[in-house]
Computed example of a mutant assay.
Amino acid sequence: MGEMIELTASDGHKFHAYAAGDEKAERALVVVQEIFGVNQHMREIADHLASFGYRVLSPAVFDRAERNVELDYTPDGIKKGLELRAAIAESNVMLDIEATAANLSPRPTGIIGYCWGGTIAWWGATRSKSFKAAIGWYGGGIVQTKEAPIACPVQLHFGALDKGIPLTDVEAIKTSQPEIPVFIYEGADHGFGCDARASFNAEANKLAEDRSLAFFAEHLV
């Protein structure tokens, strides 16, 4: 099990991050939350990824709007999460991501995110030079900056049944970034990697996880 630590961004903002894994691990990951905060599910993901030999930090990016946010996967949770997301400037999100990466330096560090975090992981590849690899799981905002130049290898994962991220958006990303491996999971919906959601798809989650771990193993050297 990990613990909550406090980090400081370059603008002086102090925020929490869930820390898991050996502090002396040779490789590191930044795990970025969904719109539900660094809740039990995100902590479990961080612990799980740490078990593969990574030092893992999951920054509480909602701390800029409200601290100690842990939302449920309900309509009310979605509504509150969207409100919090809208209250935080993208540039400030990146200040927190950069501070998290700096805490893990000089280890080779990757970034992986889910839902909103999947989009932020994309920003980690396109708005930062702190990462050696980036992976986004069902990041709905990626298409908005699909032509942005990337600074590190990227891998993306989407569910074929995800109504919030239509396959036309996924195809547009693939067309704009033909060198990026983009995986589409048949029968999988948004949030297929979250066992706290009704949309959890064990088969798609396992395959996407295996691909993600192999990608990091290849590039975080």
Rank of each mutant, 00 (worst) to 15 (best):
I111D: 09
I111A: 12
I112L: 14
I112M: 10
I112E: 03
I112A: 13
G113P: 01
G113Y: 03
Y114V: 00
C115N: 06
W116D: 13
G117K: 02
G117H: 04
T119L: 04
T119C: 03
T119M: 06
I120M: 15
I120S: 12
I120N: 14
I120D: 03
A121W: 09
W122Y: 15
W122I: 01
W122H: 14
W123D: 11
W123T: 01
W123A: 02
W123C: 03
G124W: 02
G124R: 10
G124Y: 10
A125H: 04
A125C: 04
T126K: 03
T126S: 15
T126H: 05
R127G: 08
R127K: 15
S128A: 10
S128N: 11
K129G: 13
K129I: 00
K129N: 14
K129D: 08
K129S: 06
S130V: 00
S130M: 12
S130P: 00
S130I: 00
S130D: 11
F131Q: 08
K132L: 09
K132E: 08
A133H: 08
A134D: 08
A134P: 00
A134Q: 12
I135M: 12
G136W: 09
W137V: 03
W137E: 03
W137K: 01
W137T: 05
Y138R: 04
Y138C: 01
G140M: 04
G140V: 06
G141P: 00
I142A: 03
I142H: 07
I142S: 06
V143G: 01
V143A: 06
V143N: 07
V143D: 00
Q144F: 07
Q144D: 15
Q144T: 10
Q144R: 13
T145A: 15
K146C: 07
K146L: 06
K146V: 04
E147P: 06
I150N: 13
C152V: 15
V154E: 01
V154C: 08
Q155Y: 10
Q155T: 10
Q155M: 15
L156T: 11
L156S: 08
H157K: 02
H157L: 09
H157D: 13
F158V: 05
A160P: 09
L161S: 12
L161W: 02
L161A: 10
D162P: 01
D162L: 05
K163L: 12
I165S: 09
I165Y: 11
I165Q: 02
P166M: 06
P166S: 04
P166V: 09
P166Q: 02
P166D: 15
D169P: 06
D169F: 12
D169Q: 14
V170S: 07
V170N: 05
E171L: 07
E171T: 13
A172K: 04
A172H: 00
A172Q: 02
I173L: 14
I173F: 12
K174C: 05
T175F: 00
T175C: 08
T175R: 14
T175A: 15
Q177Y: 01
I180Y: 09
I180P: 01
I180Q: 07
I180M: 09
I180T: 15
P181M: 08
P181C: 13
P181V: 15
P181I: 07
V182M: 09
F183T: 12
F183C: 00
F183R: 11
F183W: 04
I184T: 15
I184F: 10
Y185G: 12
Y185Q: 11
Y185I: 09
Y185H: 04
Y185C: 08
E186A: 15
E186Y: 05
E186G: 11
